[in-house]
Simulated assay, not measured.
Amino acid sequence: MPLFLLAACTPREVKPTEAEMDRVEAALAKLPCIGDLSRWERQYLYHPDFFAEEVATASKEGRAPRPSGYDRNVIEVHLREAGFEEFGSGRKSYSNYPPGSLDSDDRKYLIAYGSYDLKGDKLHLAACGPNM
């Protein structure tokens, strides 16, 4: 009888592509509150979905929850003022929230965040301006 073994596989990272980030940035650059994109540290990720049980467990363990999946039609957009302390210029796509990106912060620098609907080609910013 043949024996079949399945090797443990690392899940493929699911993160926005260069072409998708180009679409988001074309929309961002049109906004007066954004302007020159080189002024920003830009982070992009697909909107993660979470099972309620994982969120509760992660909260008890003091860690970020692991996504159960992703909505690949929605890209989350997180911008911070480049050159302010640890924030650099440039863009990067992520498969999950980067460490520290969800921490609250009362320092005075510029931020912008929201989402981009890939199907509808619509940018929705929740905030764009001072971090206060």
Rank of each mutant, 00 (worst) to 15 (best):
P67R: 04
S89H: 00
P67W: 02
R107W: 07
S104Y: 10
K60C: 09
D71R: 09
V74P: 08
P65Q: 01
Y109A: 01
Y116W: 06
S95A: 15
S59W: 01
P65A: 07
Y70D: 12
Y109E: 02
S104K: 10
P98L: 01
L118H: 06
P98N: 08
S95D: 15
L123P: 00
R91S: 13
R91L: 15
G114C: 02
F84K: 05
G62R: 00
G114S: 03
S93P: 05
Y113N: 01
G88V: 15
N96P: 11
D71A: 07
L125D: 04
L118P: 03
Y97I: 00
K60G: 08
F51A: 13
S68F: 08
R80Q: 01
S115K: 15
R91G: 09
D103H: 04
I75E: 01
S93K: 00
K92Y: 10
E81P: 03
E86I: 13
G114Q: 02
G83C: 05
S93T: 04
S59C: 03
S68I: 09
E81T: 00
G90S: 06
A64N: 12
T57S: 12
P65N: 00
F84T: 01
D103I: 00
E85Y: 07
S101E: 12
P67T: 07
E54N: 07
R63C: 11
Y70Q: 12
A52K: 06
Y97F: 09
L110D: 07
Y97P: 04
L79V: 09
D105E: 03
G120R: 06
S59L: 08
A52F: 13
S93H: 04
S95R: 11
E53G: 14
F84E: 00
E54C: 09
P98R: 02
G120N: 09
G83R: 06
Y113E: 01
P98W: 07
G62C: 04
F51V: 14
G62K: 00
S101F: 12
E76L: 15
P98Y: 09
L125A: 06
K122H: 12
D103F: 02
S115D: 11
Y70T: 07
K122G: 10
E53D: 14
I111Y: 03
A58W: 03
D105M: 02
K108P: 08
D106I: 10
S59V: 07
Y113M: 00
V55D: 01
T57E: 13
E61L: 12
G69E: 05
R63D: 09
L102F: 12
E86Q: 14
F51C: 11
S59Y: 01
D71Y: 05
E81V: 00
A56C: 11
Y97E: 06
E81R: 03
G62P: 01
E54L: 11
L125S: 05
E85M: 09
G88Q: 15
F84W: 10
D106T: 14
A58N: 02
R66A: 15
A112Q: 01
E53Q: 13
V77G: 00
G120A: 10
D121R: 09
E85W: 06
E76K: 14
L118Y: 06
S89C: 02
E61V: 10
L110T: 05
H124I: 11
A58I: 10
G69Y: 00
V55G: 05
E85F: 06
S95V: 07
Y94F: 11
